[in-house]
Design a protein around this nucleic acid. Structure first.
Length: 184
DNA sequence: CACCCGATTATCT
DNA sequence: GATAATCGGGTGT
């Protein structure tokens, strides 16, 4: 995807990432999956976002160039993949990749890609892969995939939030009926 | 099916 | 010292 793809409002980018393909070229081989569930996170106007309180060492990528990765570690054992995306005006924003369907090198069970932590694990991602440029070459890229067709895009509230003014915002998007979507 | 809890550690207050 | 954009296993209904 070109840089301009990510330089749009975070929610719009989130929508258009549905159907796109995440590709990770590891030492052992290529792993790839088709994105079927995402969540948009903004900045100072979104209390549920890691970027809400301004940049820190961990969240710096959310304030950095669009089209880069933001991988964070949480609950002492899980990694989650985000893609930095925001309009020109917004200082921060990213799309959490929550679910995907298996394509290459990740087995054939969609359940192993349902949920952000399982997805990151299946793709072999860790904090070593944060702040990587997904547009210019590198081990991690996102490519145009099968556009969403024949299936409806559903919207709902983001999962796992602890409250805040934007907790009810319908910024979780997924492809209806797809395997690889969490909490069906 | 709904709820509850433990695992395990980086990050922030 | 508390918390967390999670997951899987357990209990009870």
């Amino acid at each position: 995807m070109p840089r301009a793809f990510y330089a749009r409002p975070t929610l719009a980018v989130a929508r258009d990432l549905l159907g796109a393909i995440v590709v990770h070229e590891t030492a052992e081989g290529v792993r790839a999956a088709r994105i079927v569930e995402v969540e948009a996170y903004r900045g100072a106007d979104d209390p549920s976002s890691h970027a809400y309180r301004g940049p820190t060492r961990r969240t710096a990528p959310m304030f950095g160039p669009v089209g880069h990765s933001y991988v964070y570690f949480t609950y002492g054992m899980h990694y989650c993949l985000n893609v930095v995306a925001r309009s020109r005006r917004a200082p921060a924003g990213a799309v959490l990749i929550r679910g995907a369907e298996p394509l290459v090198g990740v087995g054939d069970r969609a359940r192993l890609l349902a949920g952000p932590a399982r997805l990151a694990r299946a793709l072999g991602l860790s904090t070593a892969h944060t702040a990587l440029d997904l547009v210019r070459g590198g081990p991690l890229t996102i490519r145009r995939g099968t556009p969403v067709q024949g299936r409806r895009v559903r919207r709902g509230t983001r999962i796992g939030l602890s409250g805040g003014a934007t907790a009810d915002a319908p910024w979780r998007l997924w492809i209806e009926g797809s395997e690889g979507v969490s909490r069906r």
